[in-house]
Nucleic acid binder design. Structure first.
Length: 829
RNA sequence: GCCGAAGUGGCGGAAUUGGCAGACGCACUUGACUCAAAAUCAAGCGCCCUCAAAGCGUGCCGGUUCGAGUCCGGCCUUCGGCACCA
């Protein structure tokens, strides 16, 4: 017997315990079943879940539960991205060891996740800060190292003074640190890099293998990789018997080059300054540039300042003298670090040349118009044009000239075709404690040596000083740094940097397929069964960071023979943010709604239902307390209608004669089956849970209408309607449906083990339909016709209809258009 | 500047293939029940209009079509990403 009142807390606690005790969501490989791998981005254990997490997991849980009901063997795991700065900051501030802080947070957040009733296989939980995980992160570092993809090199890197560590390019947002928002500066340091640029082309190409990814994520990755094709060639610098190489995507403007610019960091600058009569002035300028912040240097707004060196180079095609200038608007780590200047072809060059009075030569002009320098106020940057003043290429269309000039330069041995990328190598070392130590040993005799595999993991020591300043805290542990060289046995020192946490998270989805393996990172067969991830769900903020790194990682693992597919995540859903009062929830705005609050007030089912109903998953979700109330109201309505029919259902009449149904029966049956159709399609085809839920609300409304109108309800039909309603609702609100199923439908089975319902197309049919009558596209009346009426029937009915005839008086019928089941439009003049 | 997404009632949002714009829910109004309130149930709810009829209505202007929220052309606005990448 059902309780009279819906009591969410009682039933939620009961079923959560039951699921946990019975390992309800444990999965194993089953070759007889098709697999489905659904994954939500694993969280950083900050201490508490926020609404964004709740949304993320609710979406994933619906997908997992529906796929399971549809017969798939579903892998749905959860874990912890648990290395990183906040744990270390807690240690500095409160003296709590990072490990304790992290594990406490994990315990608390696990409790919160469990309170949401999520269908995770908790036996597969992975935690990146645990030895059995980071051992393999280190093992992957060694794999990359052996493949020449992990290298230590000296270069200008991004440095965050607040975090006291270097950052990857992807972690610098608008010149600021992605984590703490402080301004990032450049520092010349020797650091570990992963050579992601080796895979630039494939990372770009393979985006085409991902039709299941949002367009905007793919575009962001495309922009980030930034491929461009062009020409690399050199100018002779006779004074030093040197060559100065430049890269251009506009070889068609090559005859218009009148100057070349180099940044102060360019290797040639030292020679340019050596015995220069203007040496002091030039040196002062270079120093000034070096003191300018990176943001200012790369701001497109700032003035294009420069200084002529007095040294010239020789144009390889014309033999003319070309001035060499020092400026800071050139990026020294892109292309060759020097750029040719064509004032008439590039607006920046135009402004620079105008400012300093450098010669301008027109080499491209419109097809049907001659350009004159004295009339020009800016560079000619149109997409079409014809070459002039360009020797044998004069008169050629500019796009043809691009390849013709490259071909010519290649033939003459003067230059070569070149592809460049904006993508830079991934800087993976960090001067922090709470990360996986880089498994490298520095030996005075052997140099850089990998820690032998059998000695992994290189464990994080606990005797460290967290306030060591600009060196990694690991450097303060003598027990850690001092070791023997694995090759020669001499006294040696360990690398004291740790790895970027994005490296730990670049392979976690692979570990879930075989999480306890002590011998290998994962078993290839297990991975072949489960991988790749069929549906990945997470925030858009990882569009380039995590999602690019993971793709790169997988490609390297594939090349090493560890996996046999090309892309880690077949389908990607980027959920929208949860906002309140039009803004992102934040402590400073005071508009945070904590999941715990909602759970304790209404329970998990209400929270899940609201969050899935309020907006489609990709869009922003405006939090509404009243909306939550509405979802709670709906669950109460479900409870009461099932309670109302309880005694009828208990008769266990589970079938009925479809031919002997009353009008009300048929209406309910139609509502049920069209609801099955709609919910199934909304979930399968587009993850529109909001409309799926609204359709289920309509079904509940139909049950209420049936209750009121029907004096003698059909027991079999009611059984069918209620049991299917519970099945369809179960992925969204797993607790209430399990309780109702257990108490009313069948106490020996679980609603979550049921097969997803299918609809009977016959049940959708109606005998009569209402047809709209239009004249010239405007509605003039309605008629009720048999639903199988043909076009001809409808046309006939329309022109003989009285209301229509009235409106048509004095007019002539030009055309009649009939759309069966919908409308008839009479076109008249 | 380049790239991407989006503009629909008081609000969140629906309309999937060009076919009755506003499903479902929230808020609101009225009524029933109640001594009263809450809960629940019933009805209403785009704008204009006292009511009705008519008219208007999916960011703006234009086009295609019997018919446009949906397709095409041109704009505007908002949000997001990239941005001196030669």
């Amino acid at each position: 017997m059902l309780n009279e009142k819906y009591a969410p807390h009682e039933i939620e606690a009961k079923w959560q315990k039951y699921w946990e005790d019975n390992h309800t969501f444990k999965v194993e490989i089953d070759e007889n079943k098709k697999k489905y791998y659904v994954l939500e981005m694993f969280p950083y254990p900050s201490g508490n879940l926020h609404m964004g997490h709740v949304r993320n997991y609710s979406i994933g849980d619906v997908v997992a539960r529906v796929r399971k009901m549809q017969g798939f063997n579903v892998l749905h795991p959860m874990g912890w991205d648990s290395f990183g700065m906040p744990a270390e900051n807690a240690a500095i501030k409160h003296g709590i060891p990072p490990k304790n802080w992290t594990l406490d947070n994990i315990a608390n957040m696990t409790k919160q996740q469990k309170a949401l009733g999520l269908s995770y296989d908790w036996d597969r939980e992975v935690t990146t800060c645990k030895e059995d995980y980071y051992k393999w992160t280190q093992w992957f570092f060694e794999l990359f190292y052996k493949r020449g993809l992990a290298v230590k090199k000296k270069s200008a890197v991004n440095w965050c003074d607040t975090c006291n560590t270097v950052l990857a390019n992807e972690q610098v947002i608008d010149g600021k640190c992605w984590r703490c928002d402080s301004t990032v500066v450049k520092k010349e340091l020797s650091q570990w890099f992963f050579k992601i640029t080796d895979y630039a082309d494939e990372l770009l190409q393979d985006l085409e293998l991902l039709p299941g990814w949002p367009e905007r994520v793919k575009t962001m990755q495309k922009n980030w990789i930034g491929r461009s094709e062009g020409l690399e060639f050199s100018f002779d610098v006779p004074k030093f018997q040197e060559k100065l190489a430049v890269y251009t995507t506009r070889p068609d403007t090559i005859y218009g080059v009148t100057f070349v610019v180099v940044p102060p960091e360019h290797p040639l600058v030292e020679k340019l300054l050596a015995d220069n009569p203007n040496r002091e002035e030039l040196q002062a300028f270079c120093d000034d540039v070096r003191n300018t912040s990176d943001i200012e240097r790369t701001s497109s707004e700032s003035e294009k300042k420069g200084m002529y060196t007095g040294v010239d180079c020789i144009h390889p095609l014309t033999g003319r003298k070309v001035q060499i200038w020092i400026t800071y608007y050139v990026l020294y780590d892109y292309g060759t670090g020097a750029v040719m200047g064509v004032p008439t072809g590039d607006q920046r060059d135009w402004m620079f040349a105008t400012k300093y009075g450098i010669e301008k030569i027109i080499t491209i002009q419109p097809k049907d118009q001659e350009l004159k320098l004295e009339d020009m106020t800016c560079a000619y940057e149109e997409k079409d044009g014809v070459l002039v003043n360009s020797a044998q290429f004069t008169g050629m269309e500019m796009h043809k000239a691009m390849s013709a000039i490259i071909d010519y330069m290649e033939e003459q041995g003067l230059g070569k075709r070149k592809v460049n990328y904006r993508l830079r190598d991934w800087l993976i070392s960090r001067q922090r404690y709470w990360g996986a130590p880089i498994p490298i040993i520095y030996c005075p005799h052997c140099g850089e040596v990998l820690v032998p595999e059998e000695q992994l993991p290189v464990r994080l020591p606990e005797d460290v000083n967290f306030n060591a300043g600009s060196v990694s805290p690991l450097a303060t542990s003598t027990s850690f740094i001092n070791c023997k060289c694995p090759k020669c046995g001499a006294d040696a020192k360990r690398e004291t940097d740790t790895m970027d946490t994005f490296l730990c998270s670049s392979w976690y989805y692979l570990r879930y397929t075989d999480p306890k393996n002590a011998e290998k990172c994962f078993d290839k067969d297990a991975n072949m069964y489960w991988g790749p991830v069929d549906q990945y769900i997470g925030g858009i903020e990882h569009a380039i960071l995590h999602l690019l790194y993971s793709r790169f990682f997988l490609k390297v693992l594939r090349d090493a023979g560890l996996v046999d597919y090309d892309e880690p995540f077949t389908n990607l859903l980027t959920q929208g943010m949860v906002i309140k009062d039009g803004a992102k929830m934040s402590k400073s705005l005071g508009n945070v709604v904590s999941p715990e609050e909602i759970l304790s007030q209404y329970g998990a089912d209400t929270a899940r239902l609201f969050i899935l109903f309020a907006a489609p998953p990709e869009r922003e979700l405006e939090w509404s307390d009243q909306g939550v109330e509405g979802s709670y109201r709906f669950l109460n309505r479900v409870w009461r209608i099932v309670a109302h029919f309880e005694s009828l259902i208990e008769q266990k009449v589970i079938s009925y004669d479809a031919a002997k149904l009353s009008e009300q029966d048929k209406e309910l049956r139609r509502a049920l089956h069209s609801s099955i159709k709609k919910v199934t399609e909304d979930i399968n085809q587009r993850f529109n849970f909001n409309t799926a839920i609204s359709s289920l609300m309509e079904l509940v409304n139909a049950l209420y209408a049936y209750k009121d109108k029907c004096a003698e309800p059909n027991a079999g039909l009611v059984y069918e309607a209620v049991s299917n309603l519970l099945k369809m609702l179960s992925p969204f609100v797993p607790h209430i449906t399990e309780e109702l199923w257990n108490k009313v439908i069948d106490s020996t089975t679980s609603v979550h083990d049921q097969e997803w319902p299918s609809y009977d197309p016959e049940a959708l049919k109606v005998a009569e339909v209402e047809i709209l009558l239009q004249i010239n596209g405007k509605g003039k009346g309605r008629i009720v016709v048999p639903s199988e009426s043909t076009k001809a029937d409808l046309e006939q009915l329309a022109v003989t209809n009285e209301a229509i005839r009235e409106h048509l008086e004095g007019k002539k019928i030009v055309k009649v258009i009939a759309v069966p089941g919908r409308l008839v439009n009479v076109v008249a003049k």
